[in-house]
């Protein structure tokens, strides 16, 4: 029997379910570039980002999402990076952001 159409649906939860999400991507990136774990999400990288002027790419947000296991959009977002290097210049934690971006690309493309 088909499901009724009453004009509304049960909605999926917007909540990040930390227990269900996998942090496998985060662990792989940490393995390649350990300084990834030192990020304090201050946003210096995103604020200076060349691509951030014309798209809504934000390395800060992406890093947070990866560490929470919210990885659905990572592959499409990381393509927006121009590899200009401005983020590496400003990071106050000394993170090798260029290598982080290359690591993300490498892992999601495999």
């Amino acid at each position: 029997m088909s499901k009724p159409n009453w004009g509304y649906k049960v909605q999926t939860d917007n909540q990040i379910d930390f227990d269900k999400n996998s942090r496998g991507l985060m662990l792989q990136i940490l393995n390649i570039e350990p300084t990834f774990g030192n990020c304090i999400a201050c946003g210096s990288c995103a604020g200076t980002c060349s691509a951030g002027n014309f798209t809504n790419f934000s390395l800060q947000r992406l890093n947070v999402q990866i560490s929470r296991g919210e990885t659905a959009k990572v592959a499409s977002e990381i393509e927006k990076c121009m590899l200009c290097g401005k983020c590496t210049l400003v990071c106050p934690r000394g993170i090798n952001t260029r290598n982080v971006i290359m690591a993300i690309k490498r892992v999601v493309q495999n």
């Binding site: 009453w6 004009g7 509304y8 049960v10 909605q11 939860d13």
Partner: peptide, 14 residues
């Protein structure tokens, strides 16, 4: 409003 009922039913389901 009928279209908003998804909100209600999802709360009860939770």
């Amino acid at each position: 409003v009928q279209a908003n009922r998804g909100f209600s039913i999802s709360s009860s389901k939770k």
